[in-house]
Structure formats: structure tokens, C-alpha cells
Design a protein around this nucleic acid. Structure first.
Lengths: 184, 184
DNA sequence: GTCTATATTTCGATAGAC
DNA sequence: GTCTATCGAAATATAGAC
């Protein structure tokens, strides 16, 4: 062993997530990541192909993190309550890690959309909407729910709610209305 | 008049909108805009402060374009039908000009969120939700509706709907459910 | 696998003549 | 107001020694 490993893909991705939240996507440079994991920038290219590849890995790790938060909520008992808790957990995640969240649904230069990882992460939503709206409408209902939640927090993070009013309460209003609307 | 004006802010912004749609935000360089309007790049700085300023102007022009599409729909007669038509026009605009649309709700490096222009553009939505849900719930209902529509087309443009099914029909499903849910 | 050194490229922005 | 010429700055990525 001439030169032992001083870092790893996992450490690089975690460092990238931290830098993303603190410095934004523009601050996520190979140099910044290298500084944080304690190697020189060129060494990163032994672990990741290039910067786009790193951004992809960071995005997928973030989707997995979100999926874990959602997965623990659904037990199958009370779909209406679980819908509300899914929605609140979704928003809380976006508030806690806004830059990573924005990466999930960001338009890609790459042609491929969000990976299969996203499909896995939203599986709890499908379980709830199946219970609430029935199997036949589970997919349409899940798309309605996730579209609303994603749109709401995206607009919130972008500072698009400028007409006053209580934004927290607007979110609870949406939860209640959607739960009514999707219940068969 | 030693040197007559060979371009204008309007021409620059329109050129920027075209380049944005064809080449993406990364392709929106001062050089590309200058080529299209027929001047040299440094001349642009007599009209716009810098690239960020140009992007801001392009975003606001796009919001105004969207607002014009929405404004012609609302007559006050049938709120449920008008809600559906607003939603469809919103989605059609996003499909026709995806990059410009994505700019509207994109996270800003700038601290300021979308300008007052957006407030004006969504005014038709408020008129419809006031008729549908009552004045007391007009704002919450408008936020629910715009969040859903924005979230839906954002996910669509990002390629996030990967579980099959008919996406057009999922949108119509959402329209119907939201119209029910928001009607008082 | 990590390092130093550097190539490359690209683009935003300015200076000053006309 | 537009032009030529150029600066300045940054960041990705590679080459080759150890």
C-alpha cells in the first residue's frame, strides 16, 4: 500500500451535501469539496467521473434521505392522517435542506430525469393514496398530492408568496382540501 | 447623432428569451445575445447592467407574457370552468416555453423573490378562487391551485413522472379534484 | 491513490478610440 | 452608442512524478 485511501465516495458526497446547503450550487466546486474532505482537487477524479457525476450522486443521496423520512410515516392505519403527516414531513425536509431539495426537481442538463431512486422514495405516497382514493386512482392521486406539495414548497423557497397571509396555515388548508378531494 | 441606436432593451430581452429556449440558461451568454441583436457584446452593457440584470428582465418579461394568457380567460361567469381553463393555459404556456417558465420559480442567487410582476400575473387566479371558494378563502385557495399547477408542470418538465399512466389525464384528474375541493 | 503543476476554456466586464 | 482590444477571474480536467 503505497498511498492509503484518504477519502471515499461517501465522504465526498456528504461533503458535497454540506457545501451545497451552505454555499449553494455555485459554491459546490471540486476545490471546495476537496478542501472539506482533506485532499487535493485532482484526487477527487479517482472517485467521481466529473462534477456532473458528483451532483448526480448528491441528488440521489438526498432523494434517499427524503425517502427515509417518508417511509417511517406510513403504517396503513389512518390514510387521512398519514397524508397530512407525509405532507408535513415533505415540507420540513425541504425547509431543512432547501438546496438539496431544489436539486431533486431541478431541470437537468442531462437528458435523464430523476433516477429510479425517486420512484422508490415516493412509494409511501402511493400506499396512502391507494388507501384513500382506491387502487384505481392511486397514481393520479399521488401525482396530485406530490405536485401540490412540491409546488408549494418550491414557491415558498423561491419567495413567491408575497401577498401576505399565513403560509403555514395555507399549507394546512391545502392538506385538508386535498384529503377531502382525494378521498373516494 | 454620431452613432444611431442599433438595438434596444426590448430587442435584447426578446433575443434573450429566444436564446434561452433554444440553448438553455447556460447558453444565454452576452456574446450569444449580442450576435442575435447584431451588435458586439460590450455594447449590451449600455442597455443592461450585467448578465444577472438581463436574466431578471427576461424573467419579468416572461411573467408578463404568462399573465396576458391568463388574463383573457377570466370573465366571472363560470368559476369552475374558468379554473379549468386557467390551469390548462398555465400548463400550455410552460410546455411552449419551458426554460422561461422554469426561470419564474427558480431559486434566486439574488435575495429578492419574484417581483411584483408575478403578483399582477396571478390576479386572475385570485378572481376565480374568490368566486369559487369565497373571499375569505380566496388567497389560500389560489395558493393551493397555483402550487399544484406549478408543481405538476415542474415535475413534468423535469421528467419526474416515470411510473407510466396518462399524464394528460392525471392533470385533468387534478383539475376536477381541486375544483371540487375548493368549491365552498 | 495522492500529489504538484498546468493546460484549456469560457465568459463577464472594462478601457478608451471614434 | 458602438467599436476593438484586452483584462481578469474562475473552474474543470489532465499529465506525470512519487
Amino acid at each position: 500500500m503505497p498511498t492509503p485511501d484518504r477519502t471515499s465516495v461517501d465522504a465526498i458526497v456528504r461533503a458535497g451535501q454540506d457545501i451545497l446547503e451552505s454555499a449553494g450550487i455555485a459554491g459546490l466546486t471540486m476545490q471546495a469539496v476537496a478542501d472539506r474532505v482533506g485532499v487535493r482537487a485532482p484526487s477527487l477524479y479517482k472517485r467521481v467521473r466529473n462534477r456532473d457525476d458528483l451532483v448526480r450522486l448528491i441528488t440521489e443521496a438526498t432523494i434517499r434521505d427524503l425517502g427515509e423520512r417518508l417511509a417511517v410515516i406510513v403504517a396503513g392505519s389512518d390514510p387521512r392522517r398519514e397524508l397530512a403527516e407525509l405532507a408535513r414531513a415533505f415540507r420540513a425536509f425541504a425547509h431543512a435542506r432547501p438546496r438539496g431539495y431544489q436539486l431533486i426537481f431541478a431541470p437537468r442538463s442531462d437528458l435523464a430525469g430523476p433516477s429510479i431512486v425517486l420512484t422508490h422514495a415516493v412509494e409511501p405516497v402511493l400506499r396512502v393514496t391507494a388507501n384513500l382514493a382506491g387502487e384505481d386512482h392511486a397514481l393520479d392521486a399521488a401525482r396530485t398530492l406530490t405536485a401540490w406539495a412540491n409546488g408549494f414548497v418550491s414557491m415558498e423557497l423561491a419567495g413567491a408568496f408575497k401577498l401576505g397571509g399565513d403560509v403555514d396555515q395555507a399549507y394546512e388548508y391545502g392538506i385538508a382540501r386535498l384529503a377531502d378531494a382525494l378521498a373516494r
